[in-house]
Structures are given as C-alpha cells and as structure tokens.
Amino acid sequence: MPEEPLTRSATLPAPAARCAGRSAIREAALDTERALERFLAGIERRAFGIARLALGDHAEAEDAVQDAMIRLVRNYAGRPAEQWRPLFYRILRNRITDSQRRRKVRRAVIAWWPGGDGDGDAPDPVDSAADPGGGPDAALEGEEFLARIQRVLAGLSSRQREAFMLRNFEGMDVAQTAIAMGCSEGSVKTHYFRALQALQEVLGEWKT
C-alpha cells in the first residue's frame, strides 16, 4: 500500500507549521483568559448586588456569584464575548432559583420536624430588609429606598423580579434579558412593565 504514507504526509502539517499553530492557539487562549477576567471584574459587584437582593443573604449571594463564574468559565469561555453577560445571568438565575428551592425544602423539613418552628437559620428576604419606617437611626437615603424596593420585589413573581433586576439594575436590553431569563422578548416587556407598575403603586409617592 504505497499510497497511504504519501496521503498521510500530505495531510499532516510540517513540524514548524504545527509549532506555529500551537503557539497561535496558546495566544488565543491567553486572550480569552484576559477578556474573561475583564468581563468578570466588571460584572461581579452588580451580580452580587442582584443575588443579595434576590436571596436576602450575603454569604449565599457570594456563593451564587462564585458558582456562576465557575460555570461560565468552565462551559462558555469559548463563546463570543458578547454572549457572556446573558449567559452569566442565566446561570446565576438558575443558581438563585436552586438556592431558593433548597431553602424552601429546608424550611418545610424543619417545620414538619417536632419542635421545629420553620424559621431556623434561613432569614426571609422580606424580614431581613431594613425597616421601611425609617426613623432617626435609618440608614442612608439610598439604602432605605433600596430596602423598600427589595420588599416590593419580594412580593412579585420571580419572573417580574428577574425582569426588573436585569433590565433596571444590570442595564441589559430586552434581547439580552430574554436570553438570560430563557423567555421571549415580549414576556420580558410584560414582566418588566408589571414590576414597574407594582413598584410605582407602592413607592411612587414616597418622598425622600
């Protein structure tokens, strides 16, 4: 079979070309790494703010953001950079939903267990929000307003809450929000508008 070696050598790159190819791949990987670092550094604090509002717990929010970062890097590093933000928030959203589900189960188990009061170690986001009544010891104006928003958001459906946080706090457009939420752009618009209406009803007349 004299043809086989000839065919192989024709398809295999020469050592120098192979070396150059490897070096180009390494350079591309380094570029991706740097771009991802910039992306995560730019997004982490806002993501934490959103996770904390959704979960009402500082430590849980940190864990959720770390998990979302790891999953993004592990599974989507090779995607175009413009897809990272909606993908990251989709992962974070799933992670937050998981935490909330686990918390519900934990509470149900504690409530069922004899002597359990169901209020064990997981603080309710509404309860843990700052007192909207304010008073002389009230925190700064912005914090107080944010605590009120948190209370209203806690009473909305999860979709409305997500649409509001991603559109308003994270500043994502409708298309990116739809990817992050895994729904249509029309749904995003509806959920966002309803969330805004609910906030307007409660906070519209609130003066600082």
Binding site: R26, A29, L30, T32, E33, L36, E37, L40, A41, E44, R45, F48, E62, V65, Q66, M69, I70, L72, V73, R74, A77
Partner: peptide, 18 residues
C-alpha cells in the same frame, strides 16, 4: 476581596486547561 478571589478561582480552571 471575596468576589475577586472567586474570580481568580474561576479563571484558575481556565489557566490550568490552557
């Protein structure tokens, strides 16, 4: 600081892969 550490952990995996 903890967020920066989380970022470094996530990127460490990519670095190891590279």
């Amino acid at each position: 600081t903890r967020l920066a550490r989380a970022r470094a952990t996530a990127l460490g995996e990519l670095r190891r892969r590279r």
